[in-house]
């Protein structure tokens, strides 16, 4: 897709570099939104929710269904676009949030006292179930998706460094959501209950925190973030919906969470942007970059983990009294 030649030195080279960074940041913003769902859930019940990528995929499906129902087949603009995007984000967030809570209730909560591997296998099972239902419903192929955004460039330097409306939309939405999430977690009663439960569930419960409600709330938030990410991904980058989208995307987002330090909210955001940028740069600068980028992303992960096994912002020694 973006098979650019190896960058030459000079201004053109710098613009190429900027463009690769921009692509990285927009992709990274979406990874970060999904990575937050992995990290929130891991933080509170130490489960790697392998179904999370597929919850994200269901967000893309909901986006597609709504767009079709609204009869939109091509680019729209102005306030109409803003209204449609707002509707999509709310609908997909609610859908994915409720889906995630349902999964927790049915598949994970009954296994909460089981050995660690049991819920992990359950998560893998849920992942396949979500994929298979989508495949049954939508078929095995990718379904093309109309690009909603006008291709007008806001910034265009020599056709090399180009910033479009959709780039702004992705980054602004992601930042607003992350800001709201951090306010929620740091400054509110329910956010404090989440953090207390993550650190010592039994002590939190003895302080009156309802563990089941708090864990459900965490899944609700994680699902809602995946839903918002799914809308952004579908309308601005993917160009298609596909039952298998969640697999690779989920792995990338999970990698982002691990890179940043799983369980750490800031780490998920940092990891998301880093993975996006590493991917953007390897696509731009490596021969066959669009093929090799996956290997590079995971290579970076391994390298980071060798030197910092807990990720960039992860606690060095987790204190679980």
């Amino acid at each position: 897709m973006h098979t650019m030649a190896l960058a030459a030195a000079g201004p053109a080279g710098f613009l190429n570099f900027l463009q690769a960074i921009k692509i990285g940041i927009t992709a990274g913003a979406i990874y970060a939104l999904v990575a937050l769902g992995y990290t929130l859930v891991y933080g509170i019940i130490e489960l790697i929710n392998f179904a999370h990528g597929d919850v994200f995929m269901w967000g893309t499906q909901v986006t597609f269904v709504l767009i079709t129902a609204l009869g939109i087949t091509s680019t729209i603009g102005g306030w109409q676009l803003v209204g449609v995007l707002a509707l999509l984000v709310v609908a997909a967030s609610v859908f994915c949030g409720v889906l995630n809570v349902t999964i927790e209730r049915l598949a994970y909560r009954p296994l909460r006292r089981a050995p660690r591997l049991a819920p992990l296998i359950a998560a893998i099972a849920v992942s396949f179930i979500l994929e298979n239902i989508a495949e049954l419903w939508r078929g095995p192929g990718q379904i093309a998706f109309p690009n909603l955004f006008p291709s007008t460039a806001l910034i265009n330097i020599n056709q090399t460094f180009v910033v479009e409306y959709r780039d702004v939309f992705i980054v602004v939405l992601a930042l607003v959501i992350m800001f709201a999430l951090s306010r929620f977690i740091l400054g509110t009663k329910l956010g404090r209950a989440m953090r207390a439960t993550a650190q010592d569930p039994e002590a939190a419960q003895l302080m009156g925190v309802n563990i089941n409600t708090t864990i459900a709330l965490t899944f609700l938030l994680g699902g809602a973030l995946a839903g918002a990410g799914a809308v952004v991904f579908t309308v601005s980058t993917a160009g298609y919906v596909w039952f298998f989208t969640g697999f690779q995307f989920g792995l990338y987002a999970f990698t982002a969470a691990v890179l940043g330090g799983i369980g750490n909210v800031n780490g998920a955001v940092l990891g998301g942007f880093m993975i996006g940028i590493v991917e953007g740069l390897s696509i731009a600068y490596l021969p066959q970059g669009s093929i090799l980028s996956t290997a590079v992303v995971f290579g970076v992960l391994v390298l980071v983990l060798v030197f910092r096994p807990t990720g960039f912002l992860g606690a060095q020694v987790p204190d679980k009294a």
């Binding site: 404090r192 953090r195 207390a196 650190q199 010592d200 002590a203 009294a321």
Partner: peptide, 8 residues
């Protein structure tokens, strides 16, 4: 064995 939420 004091169980405060240490990171809060």
């Amino acid at each position: 064995n004091i169980r405060l939420f240490n990171n809060m």
